[in-house]
Simulated assay, not measured.
Amino acid sequence: MENKAHALAAGVFVALLSLLLLGLASWLTRDTGKRDIYEISTRETVTGLQPQAPVRYRGVDVGKVETIGFDTKTPGNVLLRLEVDSAAPITADTFATLGFQGVTGLSFVQLDDSGKPSPRLVPNKDDPPRIPLRPGLLAKLQDKGEKILDQVEQVSVKLNQVLSDPNQKRLAAALDNVGEAAASVSKLSTTMAAILNAQLGPERVNIPAFVKNADATLTSVRGTSDEAKKAIAEIGDTARRLNAKDGPVDRLAEGAEGLAHAADSFNAATLPRINRVTEDTSRAVRQLGRAVNGINDNPQSLIFGAGPAQPGPGEAGFTPPGASR
């Protein structure tokens, strides 16, 4: 009887302890805050994301993922249902990305915004507002990785073309030419050094005498420069005297102006008269030439006159030249 009583007491104690632990766990995990429902519909993959995964707003826990399923409104999309703390600043500018927790491969929903002023999203349990999901770091790396691989493949193809056998031979020939050119330059520099040493070395050039000659030349140059400065100053004085008021330049300008007026008067009055006289003289000379030609052709016209005019073509009595009469 005592064994049964001890067993019963132990069972009751275990049951009470189990109920106490369940109540403590329920109390510790209770949700004391008010939460709103939001949805995310996306065609991006949600690998590593599970129900009850945390939802964070700029790193702060604000909720959890309630369910993961498929969107009946948009076939092919994945639908995430989120429970977010009502105090979280969810606005129309808020967007979501998928983050990863260390090396475990588990994902969580990261909420953020661009910082622009925007109205808050109004919660609605019957038709929850939707938050857009932008590509995360893994998706961007995947897209960029494909492009990088394509570029690497192109670079490798071009590198193979550059390093082909004909190009390698050309490169080797170019290196040989560069080596020969370097050797030629070295020989040329040695030759030039020898020539300069032979022409300008201590045994050929008296350095002290050369320095003295250079000093004398510089002194002569300074004297010439002073004389040139004096000549320039005299030229400047002469130019000022020429350009002075009522000076030679002004008188020359007045003479040129008078000459221009005289030329205008000549062109306006005298020249037209000379032109008319010239035209009358030309007319008289032409008339005199015609009279002389007529006298040469018919000298008797001076005594008997010019006589009747000869009939022309188409007139009665006209006889073509050379025709028999």
Score class of each variant (00 low, 15 high):
E2K: 02
K4W: 01
A5Q: 08
H6W: 07
H6I: 10
G11F: 04
F13K: 15
L17I: 05
A25K: 08
W27Y: 14
T29R: 08
R30V: 01
G33L: 10
R35F: 12
Y38H: 09
T45F: 06
Q50L: 10
P51A: 13
R56Y: 00
D61F: 09
G63F: 05
G69W: 04
K73G: 14
T74W: 03
P75M: 04
P75F: 03
L79C: 08
L80Y: 05
A87M: 03
A92N: 01
A92C: 01
T94S: 12
G105A: 03
Q110A: 12
L121F: 02
V122N: 06
P123G: 05
K125P: 03
D127L: 12
P128K: 09
P128S: 07
R130C: 01
I131C: 07
P132W: 04
P135V: 02
Q142Y: 11
E146Y: 05
V155I: 05
N160T: 05
N160C: 02
V162I: 10
N167E: 07
K169A: 11
L171P: 01
L175H: 06
S184G: 10
V185G: 04
T190P: 01
T191I: 04
T191G: 13
A193D: 14
A194Y: 03
A194N: 14
I195R: 13
I195V: 14
L200G: 01
P202G: 01
F210Q: 11
K212W: 03
L218M: 15
R222D: 13
G223L: 15
S225N: 12
K230N: 14
R240H: 02
N243E: 06
A244L: 03
V249F: 01
D250P: 01
L252H: 03
A253G: 08
E254M: 07
G258K: 15
L259Y: 03
H261N: 10
A262Y: 11
S265H: 11
F266Q: 12
A269C: 08
I274H: 00
R286A: 15
D297Q: 14
N298V: 00
P308T: 05
P308Y: 04
A309V: 09
G314P: 09
G314C: 07
E315P: 01
A316L: 09
G317T: 04
G317S: 08
